[in-house]
Design a protein around this nucleic acid. Structure first.
Length: 575
RNA sequence: UACCCGGUGGUGUAAUGGCAACACAGAGGGUUUUGGUCCCUCCGUUGGAGGUUCGAGUCCUCCCCGGGUAGCCA
């Protein structure tokens, strides 16, 4: 095989959905066009699981020169709210996708759907049932036994038409009648045992108000909405697999404008994370988090506030792939995706989270120098900045150990380290309070090492970040961590609920952090790397000119923490 | 236990009858003024048993295991 053949064969591999769509296009199905849709129900905020679906639907459309619609699947007035339809639009846009003028609502099709229902009745494929909900359940049979036909199943077309019209007119109270498809009560697929198509719901709809009191069920509305919009490929999650025969049945029994192909894929599961709208709502309602946009939430709005970038989420969605296997993706992959993106784009600054005072004894008290610091070693175009240095500094508490363990390269009594972009300093004395806590370090600096290099070529193993006490800005820093302690938060004993697995330390707030003076003018939402600590962003809700509030998006990888942990475990096992 | 859908390293995805690939995680090493980044090495013969074939993760049969489905939710 020559080189050319090799590179030609090395085409990007397609997932099973794209493979299938590519085949359809190759066979000129739908005249070779591709049209998808993202159809959220506006009953909650979008989360990272929805991002997978958004990236898939909008991504597929773009790759095949097609279009993707945004459609609100709003057929249940009891659960849906305008707040959600607004947040959903904001989130999809923020992720970087555009539906142009193609924003639709299933509720916008209510009249057409009604007509399709009438068509079904006329053809003898639907009937009004007057059994109660409980009776319908009893008649349905079980997973292993066939169902029984409703005594109302053989009403005449005229009677069905009349009843359905009166249902619409509001003559009946909720629960007294439903419209059902006439399919097969003995079907091994329970979905096909005369599924309900319409139910009476005397509730105000967020868009249609009180214009309707009958609302179509998902199985009836969804396939027809797809057909009305000329969708070619209707991508949905695995739990609708059993519903596909019904999707096809409805389209085959009315004069639908086209027949989209439903394809199911596995929804996203993330370790240490809950992705169920019902449970996320519970976290919000019961006050476990501050709201849908709490930075610990896996919602798009929460992740945005936490400091995630749209690019990182899109990259993540590409990496996880699309398949039919129910799997759990490691949260580490998401963390890697955001670190990777932020590493390239986040300006570096120095911020001390837990300040320890350091006095440079041989440095003049009335002197301030401005030292040159690189803004981003990954991006030469990011330039440099000047950071002030003076006699009194803060360093990170954890960067000093009175009795340094093996492999600890940071500051200790008598030891010399480098202050980043500044000088080598040597610890000469340790000041403690009455309780024995270290409250201040006395150090000397070597004027020859300005900028961080020694003319005599001597090496130091540690480089510490620092800020000048007189120039620093005080900030509140919110350290966010995983919301749950267990890989699978649903794993509980007896009748406990998932909330028992909440991580009590998912938010640690530090009040007296000191950051470089340049951050005073940072705008809400701006992202930074605090060198050696992690990626942070200015909180968009609580930060102000008076009080800087900074969120930790994700820590840097910390190989010292690993070494230390391994050392501790080694000690444990030898004891 | 009726029907439907799945099983490839610790995790997630590739390989479309022809040398099991990529990423994450983990371990080890190198570079380094971030214990970051970057670079290198190591870590699976595809749930099991048969069969077809020159050749099987891929096709066939049986078995085992996992998920979904009994809303007037989506």
């Amino acid at each position: 095989m020559d080189h050319k053949q090799k590179t030609e064969q090395k085409t990007e591999s397609l997932d099973f959905i794209r493979t299938r769509i590519a085949e359809d296009v190759a066979q000129n199905k739908n005249n070779g066009s591709v049209h998808t849709r993202f159809p959220p129900e506006p009953n909650g905020y979008l989360h990272i699981g929805h991002a997978k679906s958004i990236c898939l639907n909008f991504g597929v459309a773009k790759e095949f020169n097609g279009k993707c619609n945004l459609r609100f699947d709003d057929t249940n007035p009891a659960k849906e709210e305008v707040e959600y339809v607004q947040s959903i639009q904001e989130d999809v846009h923020w992720l970087g996708y555009d539906w142009e003028d193609r924003i639709f609502y299933t509720s916008g099709y209510f009249e057409k759907l009604y007509e399709f229902a009438v068509e079904l009745i006329r053809k003898g494929f639907a009937y009004v049932d007057s059994l109660s909900a409980e009776e319908i359940r009893e008649y349905r049979g079980t997973l292993t036994e066939p169902g029984r036909e409703s005594p109302y199943r053989n009403r005449s077309v005229a009677e069905n038409l009349d009843l359905f019209e009166r249902m619409r007119a509001g003559e009946f109270t909720g629960g007294t009648h439903v419209l059902r498809a006439k399919i097969d009560m003995a079907s091994p697929n329970i979905v096909m045992r005369d599924p309900t198509l319409y139910r009476i719901r005397k509730a105000t709809h967020h868009r249609t108000g009180d214009a309707w009191c009958i609302y179509p069920m998902y199985d009836f509305a969804h396939c027809l909405s797809d057909a009305i919009e000329g969708i070619t490929h209707s991508l949905c999650t695995l739990e609708f697999e059993n519903n596909r025969p019904l999707y096809d049945w409805v389209l085959d029994h009315v004069s639908a404008p086209c027949h989209p192909q439903q394809i199911e894929f596995a929804r996203l599961n993330l370790s240490y994370t809950i992705l169920s709208k019902r449970k996320l709502l519970k976290l919000v309602e019961d006050g476990y988090v501050s709201g849908w946009d709490d930075p610990r939430m896996p919602t798009i709005s929460g992740m945005r506030r936490r400091g995630f970038t749209p690019q990182s989420i899109r990259n993540f969605c590409v990496r996880i792939g699309v398949a039919k296997f129910n799997s759990i993706v490691d949260i580490e992959l998401l963390e890697h995706s955001i670190r990777e993106d932020l590493n390239k784009r986040a300006p570096r600054v120095m911020g001390v989270l837990q300040p320890l005072r350091v006095v440079i004894e041989n440095y003049s008290a009335d002197k301030t120098e401005y030292l040159n610091a690189v803004n981003n070693p990954e991006d030469p175009d990011a330039g440099t900045r000047q950071v002030p240095f003076s006699r009194i500094l803060y360093i990170e508490k954890e960067d000093f150990r009175e009795e340094p363990p093996k492999k600890f390269f940071r500051l200790a009594p008598g030891r010399e380290v480098r202050l980043r972009y500044a000088y080598f300093i040597t610890c000469t004395d340790v000041i403690k309070d009455e309780q024995g806590n270290v409250v201040e370090l006395r150090c000397t600096y070597d004027p020859q090492t300005r900028g961080g290099d020694s003319p005599d070529g001597r090496k130091v193993k540690g480089t510490l970040h620092w800020v000048s006490a007189a120039h620093a800005v005080t900030a509140e820093v919110r350290l966010y961590d995983r919301l749950f302690l267990k890989r699978n938060p649903d794993e509980v004993n007896g009748n406990e609920i998932f909330a028992v697995n909440l991580n009590p330390d998912s938010l640690v707030t530090l009040q007296n952090c000191r950051v470089e003076p340049g951050l005073k003018n940072a705008a809400p939402g701006e992202i930074f790397q605090f060198e050696r600590k992690g990626y942070f962003c200015i909180d968009t809700k609580d930060s102000s000119m008076e009080k800087l509030v900074v969120n930790r998006t994700v820590s840097l990888r910390d190989s010292w923490a690993k070494i230390e942990k391994a050392g501790e475990q080694k000690e444990k096992s030898t004891k």
